[in-house]
Design a protein around this nucleic acid. Structure first.
Length: 178
DNA sequence: AGCAAGATCGGT
DNA sequence: CCGATCTTGCTG
């Protein structure tokens, strides 16, 4: 049985939501087709002091969305080529989001968005069927049975001694179900 | 107005 | 390791 995750799921502590997202399914509707991909790696960006997070620069045109409602899509362009897919977490005015880095078939955040046709047009929209992009749980997959590995976030060496080393990258090592 | 850097990727 | 490629935010 499947269930679409709503605002309440994302309106919790970001580290908690990050772990909970592993084993969930990212669903993308492209034309008439629906693609379902199990999320295998995510990264948390938490609060106004996290130097790895865009939000550490405060409210700007770009970061405003991170200060918004849980479940909102934060999608930005990097390196002149790739779109990064994030979901806003926690309460309003507290900037936090989770970067969806990989799914079973798509390794890496840039590849993921390229293959699922996700770009800036979705920036600021709510995760959900109306935007054609949502996340579902599948009761067959029990998150508690997943082996999860935490490590430092990727590509954030600019974030200083403390923040570049926080163990906010979460990935599935293996699972006893599926 | 100009500039440096970037939550990446694929090829050497 | 290196280049591709372009938006963003900061400086002046």
């Amino acid at each position: 049985m499947r269930k679409v995750l709503g605002k309440a799921f994302f309106e919790r502590k970001t580290a908690l939501v990050a772990q909970a997202l592993l084993g969930k399914f990212l669903v993308r509707k492209i034309g008439g087709k629906v693609v379902r991909e199990m999320i295998t790696e995510v990264e948390a960006y938490i609060g106004p002091h996290d130097l790895a997070s865009h939000a550490s620069k405060g409210r700007t045109t770009r970061t405003e969305i991170m200060f918004g409602e849980a479940g909102t899509l934060y999608i930005y362009f990097v390196y002149g080529m790739y779109w990064m897919l994030n979901v806003v977490t926690e309460g309003k005015n507290y900037p936090a989001a989770i970067l969806i880095r990989s799914t079973e078939n798509y390794k890496g955040p840039g590849v993921l968005t390229r293959e699922l046709k996700i770009d800036g047009k979705l920036n600021g929209q709510r995760l959900g069927k109306s935007s054609g992009l949502w996340i579902e749980s599948d009761l067959k997959i029990e998150n508690s049975k997943l082996k999860i590995h935490r490590s430092a976030r990727i590509g954030v060496s600019y974030a200083g001694k403390i923040w570049s080393k926080k163990l906010l990258n979460y990935k599935i090592l293996s699972s006893s179900n599926t």
